[in-house]
Amino acid sequence: MDKSTIVCRCEEINVDEIEGAIRMGASTFDDIKRLTRCGMGPCQSKICMNLVRELIANNLGVSISEIPPPRMRMPLKITRLGILAGKTSSSNVVSVFDEASLEAGER
């Protein structure tokens, strides 16, 4: 297979880049994701998940059943920020200005 073949359509990561990450010691989808951005685009690894798992399995000489899937992240589908925003009473979210005093231990 041509090593420049795209695996991750969104971030346009190819076979060579994924195998490079595996050579660095990456053994899960998430390891590869952090090194290459593979699977970080709008489809969130929905298309490349099993392609990458297969590449890892082949390169490491193990069964694909051994390779865990990437961690799924919310929102499960791309969602406009405005639609996501909900009016809730703020509890854990603080402005950075408060954060300065928090870090300084001024509580």
Partner: peptide, 9 residues
């Protein structure tokens, strides 16, 4: 959590 064209609820 459900989203439609206008809101998330």
């Amino acid at each position: 959590g459900i989203a439609n064209d206008t809101e998330t609820f």
